[in-house]
């Protein structure tokens, strides 16, 4: 899995008040281990009138110090959510593993749009492959999965944020429980 080479810069640039409010990395090692190929990536934000926006992303990566999460979105289909992120910095992402239904949600207020890193195209491809491996046993065709997650490399964009809240969304009695 690709690592975030700009982790230290990110920590410096992320809002100081967020850093002082939660000095420890919120993303636990078990979350980092979960946010790898095989999970889905959904990103949401909202505009100034609090109208929500949403788009399916392709991939995600946790920084080495586990303080930030970067999601890879497709610029064209995600245009509205990217506009809202650029305007407000608020983001919520949701990641689910189809075979186990395990789902987590991360929220942050310092989201920044960045150019993808050098290994992000390979990472995105690994996520497409990983998601197909998850969906094939439950009857989805390869053509379908690759169509839904199709990306043009030049269309990829990275959004990095410092999670300030993490929740479980696995369907069941503990859905909505705060994890961090």
């Amino acid at each position: 899995m690709a690592r975030d080479s700009k982790a230290s810069k990110s920590t410096k640039q992320s809002a100081p008040k967020a850093a002082s409010a939660s000095p420890a990395a919120l993303i636990a090692p078990e979350h980092a281990a979960f946010l790898v190929p095989g999970v889905s990536v959904i990103a949401a934000s909202r505009d100034a009138r609090l109208v929500p926006s949403v788009s399916r992303g392709v991939a995600c990566r946790v920084s080495e110090d586990r303080r930030s999460l970067t999601v890879l979105l497709r610029r064209t289909p995600a245009a509205t959510v990217l506009r809202d992120i650029a305007d407000s910095g608020w983001i919520t992402t949701c990641h689910s593993q189809p075979s186990t239904h395990r789902t987590i949600q991360l929220k942050g207020r310092d989201a920044r749009i960045e150019a993808p890193g050098p290994q992000d195209i390979a990472l995105a491809q690994a996520f497409v492959d990983g998601f197909f491996a998850e969906l094939e046993p439950i009857g989805y065709t390869e053509a379908f999965v690759r169509t839904v997650l199709f990306f043009a490399p030049e269309d990829l964009v990275a959004v990095r944020f410092t999670p300030t809240e993490i929740y479980s969304q696995t369907p069941g009695p503990n859905a909505g429980q705060r994890l961090a």
Partner: peptide, 19 residues
Amino acid sequence: SVPSAMATCAPDGTPNVTY
């Protein structure tokens, strides 16, 4: 057949997204 993604927003401006 395919789960849908749903986004809402709290009055304080925090977005929420779920399947």
